[in-house]
Simulated scan of single mutants.
Amino acid sequence: MADLVDSMLDLMRRLPPTHVEENVSALVQMCPDYADDLLGSVDQPLKVMTDKATGKDYLVCDYNRDGESYRSPWSNEYDPPLEDGTVPSSKLRKLEIAANEAFDTYREMYYEGGVSSVFLWDLDDGGFAGVVLLKKILTPAAPGEPSGSWDSIHVFEAAERGRQAHYKLTSTIMLQMVDRGAREGAKDAAPEGTRAGEVSLSGSMTRQTEQDWPLQDQTSHITNTGRMIEEMEIKMRNLLQEVYFGKTRDVVFDLRSVDDLEKQRRQRELQKELVGFIKR
């Protein structure tokens, strides 16, 4: 069993991230007995559902799934309905409601749109765990404009130790971007029915951290995890911008210069003259 699951996970790491949903579905059809192990180990883009009782949108993933049904954080009900579905204890449910309200504000501040959901569950050792989900989709306003999506999955465990709590946080960000724009004149050379200059970037990044924070009451868990998630998202966003997109830009510029060669030659000659004046 372990060897087969490891082989499927190894295969998923080598397949294009843009087709992760199709690839996971194909593997589940091939090995249905290991569907839970695969779905619990592979991060997929979050999907949006609407709570029929409240009319609010929420996100679905493996953490709020029970069989083929998904639990809403707003009404605490499963869709499709499930009589014996797993739900948090009454005490944890109150904290879950407050956490959803808090991270809904966080979503509006940082994402200016999108959807957020928080799900909590009890652990056997007396602590609890949870997941904070955030998703933002960029829909092109006109044909040819960029499109993309940002998915954040923050899974954490909380263990109370007197007046402190120890938190373990695992954060995954999945990013997809497609730029279908084409330079003027380039479309004439493209095959009919296609667009020249289309660029697609996608991938995921995972980081982990552990921290201890003071605990005054149950609502402190929301403040503490919120601070950790905020810091982690800022760090990961900076990594994406500086390392990954910076490297992509360098590669593109090495392949195709924006300026013409004659302009670059004149700039180099000017630099040499300036260096010569400085040495004098």
Rank of each mutant, 00 (worst) to 15 (best):
L138D: 06
A196F: 11
M174L: 14
V28F: 07
E198K: 04
M177L: 15
L215C: 01
V20C: 14
E157F: 02
R107M: 12
M177A: 15
V199F: 14
M174N: 07
K94L: 01
A158R: 11
V251S: 13
L11N: 14
A142Q: 12
Y63F: 13
K136T: 04
Q164L: 12
T223M: 06
G40T: 10
D43G: 11
A182F: 12
L270C: 08
W121E: 10
R13Y: 13
A53N: 09
P80F: 03
G130V: 10
G40Y: 09
V258K: 07
R161Q: 09
R256W: 13
S41M: 04
T50G: 02
D217S: 03
T139S: 13
D57S: 13
F156T: 02
Q271R: 07
P17E: 14
R13V: 05
M8N: 12
N100G: 01
T54L: 09
D212H: 00
M109D: 06
N64C: 00
D260G: 02
W74Q: 01
S89W: 04
T139R: 09
P73A: 01
E210V: 03
P73T: 00
R266L: 15
S90V: 11
H221Y: 00
E21W: 00
K136E: 05
K47N: 02
A196S: 06
K279Q: 08
S7N: 13
S149C: 07
H166S: 01
S220T: 00
E269V: 02
F277V: 10
Y106H: 09
S89M: 05
R161I: 14
P16G: 09
V258F: 14
S116C: 00
N76L: 14
A186M: 08
K135N: 05
L46H: 04
W74G: 00
S149Y: 07
A99E: 00
S152L: 12
A190T: 03
P73I: 01
V243E: 15
A2T: 15
K263L: 11
Y34E: 15
A26K: 15
E242I: 12
V275E: 15
E210C: 12
L38V: 07
